[in-house]
């Protein structure tokens, strides 16, 4: 269970988040919607530890998640993808997938030189897993292309694959469907459903309402940094207040 309690963030006088609280259970997809600038990305950044300034707390299965330290947050099994995918552009797709695996014995100087056999074994395992993740994403044919050469949609799939290599319990996805063609959106939707069936917690920030309604179990609506509505997708769709804030006009 992911529990977020009273999260607040401000830049100067501007309040980006006003004591936001929410909960998400394992095996569920929680949609996060709201107009631009409503604090969705800030919210993901804070949970992922990329953004430091915050009051409030985040707990995963009761354990306090340290805020402001992305490398420690990742160790708690929380992974974040970015709206503009962050990839190592001058490494291949296959290498990008592999860097998601953690821990890697071969990243320590000591084991690199003193335990070459361990390093080799771990590396072989990582390669096997990378192959299966690539197949799952249907990106095997791109394995040896530079990540920077992929289309926007493929890059989003790749960054999702990179996250999966770290076996996250919580996935924070920032607009995975934005600027992606319908075929790849369909593939992502199927993937998200599979991940939910595996018992992971997924927080999905997305503008594409079809995707949100298609996969989310529950939807939280943010406006000006505060939660203004929460419920199942259909109820949210019928909520007049939400539609007004979101679309700027009565539904």
């Amino acid at each position: 269970m992911l529990t977020v309690c009273d999260l607040s963030v401000s830049y100067g006088r501007f309040q980006a988040l006003r004591s936001v609280s929410l909960q998400a259970a394992p095996g569920s997809i929680l949609g996060l919607i709201g107009p631009n600038g409503s604090g969705k990305s800030t919210f993901l950044n804070v949970i992922a530890g990329v953004q430091a300034v915050a009051s409030g707390e985040v707990r995963l299965d009761g354990t306090l998640v340290p805020l402001g330290l992305p490398e420690r947050v990742a160790a708690h099994g929380i992974g974040r993808s970015f709206q503009t995918p962050r990839l190592a552009h001058r490494l291949t797709v296959f290498q990008n997938i592999m860097i998601g695996a953690r821990p890697q014995a071969g990243e320590r100087l000591r084991s690199l030189f003193l335990q070459p056999a361990t390093v080799r074994r771990r590396e072989a395992d990582i390669q096997d897993e990378a192959r299966s993740v690539l197949r799952r994403l249907d990106l095997s044919h791109k394995a040896n292309d530079y990540a920077g050469m992929l289309s926007g949609g493929q890059q989003k799939l790749l960054s999702l694959g990179m996250l999966l290599m770290g076996h996250p319990r919580v996935l924070l996805l920032d607009e995975p469907a934005a600027g992606v063609n319908p075929v790849l959106i369909e593939r992502q939707i199927n993937l998200l459903k599979e991940l939910r069936a595996e018992g992971r917690i997924i927080l999905l920030v997305e503008h594409n309402m079809e995707m949100v309604c298609g996969v989310c179990d529950r939807v939280v609506v943010l406006d000006s940094g505060a939660v203004i509505a929460e419920g199942d997708p259909d109820a949210i769709r019928r909520d007049e207040r939400v539609m007004r804030s979101y679309l700027g006009e009565p539904a």
Partner: peptide
């Protein structure tokens, strides 16, 4: 050569491209 061709070398290249990426993948840049 050993470092460059190893998983460590791979992660160093990630650092070269994007430190934040390395951090969100759980590494301490």
């Amino acid at each position: 050569r050993r470092v460059g061709a190893s998983p460590l070398g791979r992660m160093l290249r990630v650092l070269r491209e994007d430190e934040v990426l390395a951090a969100t993948l759980g590494r301490n840049p």
